[in-house]
Design a protein around this nucleic acid. Sequence first.
DNA 1: TGTTAAGCGAGACGGTACGTCGCGTCTTAAT
DNA 2: ATTAAGACGCGACGTACCGTCTCGCTTAACA
Lengths: 198, 198, 198, 198
Amino acid sequence: MARPLSTEAREKILSTAGEILLDTGVSGFTVDEVVRRSGVAKTTIYRHFDTSAQLIVHALDSIVAPFPTPNTGSLRGDLGAYCEITSQITCDARLRLLMLELLAAAAQNPELAKTKRAMFAERMGPVRTIIQLAMARGEISADVDADFATELAEAPFLAHLMIHGLDAPTEAQLDKMIEFVVAGLTGMGSDAAPAPAH
Amino acid sequence: MARPLSTEAREKILSTAGEILLDTGVSGFTVDEVVRRSGVAKTTIYRHFDTSAQLIVHALDSIVAPFPTPNTGSLRGDLGAYCEITSQITCDARLRLLMLELLAAAAQNPELAKTKRAMFAERMGPVRTIIQLAMARGEISADVDADFATELAEAPFLAHLMIHGLDAPTEAQLDKMIEFVVAGLTGMGSDAAPAPAH
Amino acid sequence: MARPLSTEAREKILSTAGEILLDTGVSGFTVDEVVRRSGVAKTTIYRHFDTSAQLIVHALDSIVAPFPTPNTGSLRGDLGAYCEITSQITCDARLRLLMLELLAAAAQNPELAKTKRAMFAERMGPVRTIIQLAMARGEISADVDADFATELAEAPFLAHLMIHGLDAPTEAQLDKMIEFVVAGLTGMGSDAAPAPAH
Amino acid sequence: MARPLSTEAREKILSTAGEILLDTGVSGFTVDEVVRRSGVAKTTIYRHFDTSAQLIVHALDSIVAPFPTPNTGSLRGDLGAYCEITSQITCDARLRLLMLELLAAAAQNPELAKTKRAMFAERMGPVRTIIQLAMARGEISADVDADFATELAEAPFLAHLMIHGLDAPTEAQLDKMIEFVVAGLTGMGSDAAPAPAH
DNA sequence: TGTTAAGCGAGACGGTACGTCGCGTCTTAAT
DNA sequence: ATTAAGACGCGACGTACCGTCTCGCTTAACA
């Protein structure tokens, strides 16, 4: 006798929400605006999503896509390849903005925190594999914690986002970052001076 | 000839605003709340600050304080010392939140962007000096750009903020980060190096 | 299809507004005070009434009530009877004030002008009938314009309102006014000069 | 030892206030607007006039001018002449508005009430003389109270103001009003009932 | 002929009301 | 029972005017 929540409505809501998020960022996001643009009733939106934050979460979730993991045979090669793979995402000013806003919002909202974690996991999974491969190859000391190393590997790219905001790094800067990361990771753990990068 | 804007009111506004920012973050900041807590009239607030954003800017500005620059004779020592100096700031969850929110807001508001830049400048100035000392000592290659190296040196700490939000890094993690940074910076620039990555 | 404007809210708004109008007059009328007294949200008030003036209009409209038309067989008798019928209204200081304020406001606001006209129509309709009956009886010349005569018949009462403000006329004064009106109206139109007064 | 309030400032204030009153009426009158237009400081205004109402009062007072009293030898002639004398004032829509607003305001503010009374006195003084002359001539019964008769004589003109607002009466209407007043006043007081009109 | 207290312009101050926007909840009719 | 539509209470927004206050500067009356 009942009637299920229509997927049609849900999708219209999510795509409109995503659109708005890209247009105006989280700060400009408004349930009323979703209503206006999508023609879906506010009641319906709140029936599908308890909270406007949850709607944002789901809209963001549908934006995230998994990345393939490169395997070039060297840490440096893999990191360079991965940079190129993700560059479409990491250089889009709108996505950079969303990421920054998400970071701030996640610090106050547990649901968004979960989404943030998922996004990082998606993005950092391949990096972790890259690290583990490098450890298997001996490029990185086995003493190093893989998860922590993954964070370190991402650090320069994330820091650039924080410091320079919407302006993506240049090719040259990316190269330097990779050089730094490779030097840093290969130089860690072994008390002896950094092993020659082979 | 006219009556000057009262410094008393201004200070009451700013201190109250700062208080609220620490309590609730930028997202919970409200001019009306400033009115309630400070007893200053809304009109007066808008007489002093054109925009609520400007008020936030000035409130944040008055929170920033300069840090001393350590000089222990080694890159590793200096970074460690600086970490300890700044740890009061960098470990306060409220300030971590403010920083994250500021990053997001700065991406959309030029005035806040200026404040953000000032904050980074304050924080990163000593690091830059540390880097330059290390370059003078020969620990870091003279080929490396000092500004860029400064950003790289901060990267792990900033990245931790992004990834872990309000949870500050542990002592052990800080040690590892410093180790990573030292290895990374000292390993850069020497041409004896990595095979071309692309 | 949508939810209709609730009559409950509308009535609460209107009765509260009327109450305030009687308490403080138009000049002391405030939407915020309606909010406070009625518990209805300001947004809701503005949903029902575009303008505070419109709200006043409707509140006043709901105060107006039609008067019965007397028929005693003589102009003098009818006017006297009508005076007594309307005395509750015309002697209430609060309503006298409202009327004065309405007159001033109507001169500047077309909507209030409409309400003013309606109020006068309500009040003067029976007088017009009284005049027409007198004309049919031959008490008043058929040459006289009934509408204009109606205005003349009301003139002393209205003038008293203007000159004496909130102080209503005494019984004796009302009698004299009626005497004046009867003499004036019956003496008009017939070219034969008024009978010598002594 | 002190310095007297400057008449220059006072006059600038009053003339500007009068200007504004004619432009926008009492309801649009604002002390801040006087400041803007006159260049006189708000402090100075409040030094000269305790209250914005008092300022309005004095501005209106300086608008009022005495009228000459006609003497044509007959009540009808005098009233007609007086009508013409005052028509410049009584037909100016801006002054009609001011009068209506003054009536409303006077009902709530004792100071404005005083001004209103003064205005009526100025305007009705000559009418009273006209009435007294007519009583001396025997046109009006000596039994009638002169003050009350004066009010009755003005009634149609005042009533027209109330009913028709800013639209002044036409010549023809004025004639009829005078006819009505003459008939009314001459028909009063003689116990001999008014002669049947047919 | 100074001195000096007041007047003066300018405009900041604490208030109150304005009319608007977004929130998340609710009610209604129609499918 | 879900939907579109939109009314509801709430609270923040930024503005206008109120009448009071604090500023320096200027000026007229007194010594």
